[in-house]
Design a binder for these strands. Structure first.
Lengths: 135, 135
DNA sequence: TTTTCACTTTAGAATAATTATAAACTAGAA
DNA sequence: TTCTAGTTTATAATTATTCTAAAGTGAAAA
């Protein structure tokens, strides 16, 4: 993803392309593969990568702004920290608890044959499959 | 579940049947239906139910001891709090985010036709399906 | 350009969930 | 009954996250 596209992405979601947002966006979206992270891990990686450091609060703000804008998705993982994913399409996850690592599974690689109907006036919003791994 | 069975359950997992553990176990396991809770909600319910109150740290200790012993399972739910479930068999969940409520789905009510194979030397430990609900 | 102001960033305080500590208590073996 | 390892408890500490309020900045308007 080019810098110009980063700027477009930010502007299209009514987020001013500040220095910090552009740097974080470049770090997150200029990748081939999807990227999974927690705010803590992202912060550490940004400290390594960037000359000037970005305030932790800004990283929280920015990640949430990106999530709200639909540029990041939040992944439910048992435990204390919140995981985010640059893959915002409908997909699933392997979770390797030994390395606290998420691995994407394409939506087409899982086919569900039978599913219960939603209870009392509710509808199904989405179905997430989470496959825990062991050695 | 009778009191005698509560005592058995505790002893069989090498947990001394202290007053607090017995009370918490009775509250959790003397039920027809499965019960979902957070430590916070359990604490509130126990305060209502019991004359003497149990220290919050003890509730954390006990819930974790029960989980380690296999009497409770932990459910992955996005968000800050940890949910527990008295249903320890293999099963799935609906999640109604509006009421922050979990609803059990029997393992037999979901059939997965196609599943990817585990990556690099890993094996599949278990598969959890999580169905988010909306109105 | 310069001005202006709503939007942002920031450091640090505040909050919330959970875990650690260490002293007092207790179940159950001897 | 005595003794001891296991347990409970109040409280402090830790961890993740959010809040606050002051200083900074993009970009529209003058």
């Amino acid at each position: 993803m080019k810098k110009i596209d980063i700027l477009k992405k930010l502007r299209s979601s009514r987020l001013r392309p500040t220095k910090q947002r552009v740097e974080i966006a470049k770090f997150l979206f200029e990748r081939e593969k999807t990227f999974h992270f927690t705010v803590e891990s992202l912060n550490k990686l940004l400290i390594k990568k960037l000359a000037s450091k970005i305030a932790l609060a800004t990283i929280y703000n920015t990640v949430h702004a990106f999530k709200t804008a639909g540029h990041l998705s939040e992944v439910e993982v048992r435990g204390n920290k919140t995981y985010f994913d640059t893959n915002v399409s409908n997909h699933h996850h392997f979770y390797d608890s030994e390395n606290a690592e998420l691995i994407d599974i394409d939506a087409n690689d899982i086919v569900i044959q039978k599913i219960p109907k939603a209870p009392n006036g509710k509808k199904i919003k989405n179905v997430e499959v989470f496959i825990n791994l062991k050695n």
